[in-house]
Design a protein around this nucleic acid. Structure first.
Lengths: 204, 204
DNA sequence: GTCTATATGGTGATAGAC
DNA sequence: GTCTATCACCATATAGAC
């Protein structure tokens, strides 16, 4: 549907940062344009409305998540090690594409965007379906680990929601401008994965 | 500073639901008033501005969290069992006061509210400090558990952020209107706590 | 205390020059 | 493709009637 042309990518990056900092409704097309050193004529030339712009940021954010996690699905090791690799890849992707993934989370929370055209409504449904597919990747992998007797006796659905929540909450406290070294991101991601997989309680 | 009088509580409940559903910026004072079957004159009589109203919702939301977790801090058992009780109380409070706690999380994410008066800026700082205090409760308890050799070898700061994220993410997927029985909430809270404390990986 | 009416400013979106 | 100029609308907040 929408192609990520260079001109659009520049707009998407500016928009992602604005949406992250101020939220969808508080962000005006003017400030998105000003962040690029342009005026809103440029934005409206490439996007018919603010909602469509938001949806495209969301779409790119999801693409980046899938691209990050997909290779990890074929990582070597047993089903639990694959799950761990997927979690780590997910965490790293959120650090690396902080603004875009913040917008994705914002999209999860927003219940109403105002009046939507039929086409926009359809695109929103598609985005929600994409989020469910992403969660399903983890649910399937966790189920595989369970079949291999590698998983604790937990409700897989709730456990997956909980672990994704634990990872995604890093969007709140991670400050990309403070310490964005690759080494530090690795350390944080591994610490989160370790906590979620092994738990806080000491193992006997 | 602000007292939760009955008249104000009615406004706060209506506002919490509107803020949850539509977000701060998209919520107009008109719809808050309409939800009470009133007009905005009533709201402005009790609150000088929308920001002040939002802050008071946030404040009540934090009060409810502290009130829920405080008793659990004196629960019987070792340091780890106390931590578990605190986590469960926190989860239950978020189910029970879903709208208010959604607004609290929203406040965590919002970086800019627009222009704030000096007094409002000061109140915002106080709210942020309150959130830090709440997190500190869990950090201290986790440290106590570590001193008692009950904790796994994890970074306490990251582990606490991760576990709070796992719990708080339930605000996204929990639907209070679907199944709000006390029994179901207990089940969900216990499943989350169990996952976070014991981890997903099977124990040898 | 609660209402209606209104002042004021900002935002999404469009039209048309270059 | 990008800009300026402009319109129509909506939200915050205020003033004053009841």
């Amino acid at each position: 549907m929408s192609e990520f042309t260079p001109a659009r990518l520049e707009i998407l990056h500016a928009a992602a940062e604005c949406f992250m900092e101020q939220g969808f409704h508080a962000t005006s097309i003017d400030v998105v344009a000003r962040r690029m050193g342009a005026t809103k004529g440029r934005v409206y030339h490439h996007y018919p409305s603010k909602v469509d712009l938001f949806f495209d940021v969301h779409r790119l954010g999801m693409d980046l998540l899938f691209s990050a996690v997909e290779p990890a699905r074929h990582a070597p090791g047993d089903a639990l090690e694959v799950l761990a690799a997927m979690m780590k890849a997910h965490a790293l992707a959120m650090f690396e594409h902080h603004a875009f993934e913040s917008v994705v989370v914002q999209g999860v929370q927003l219940h109403r965007f105002g009046a939507l055209t039929p086409r926009q409504h359809q695109e929103l449904e598609a985005l929600i379906a994409t989020r469910d597919q992403f969660e399903a990747l983890f649910k399937e992998q966790a189920s595989a680990a369970r079949r291999a007797k590698l998983l604790a006796n937990v409700d897989v659905s709730i456990a997956v929601k909980t672990l994704l929540g634990g990872l995604q909450w890093s969007l709140i406290w991670y400050r990309p401008e403070i310490d964005d070294s690759a080494k530090n991101r690795e350390r944080l991601a591994e610490a989160m994965v370790r906590t979620l997989l092994l738990g806080l309680a000491a193992r006997a």
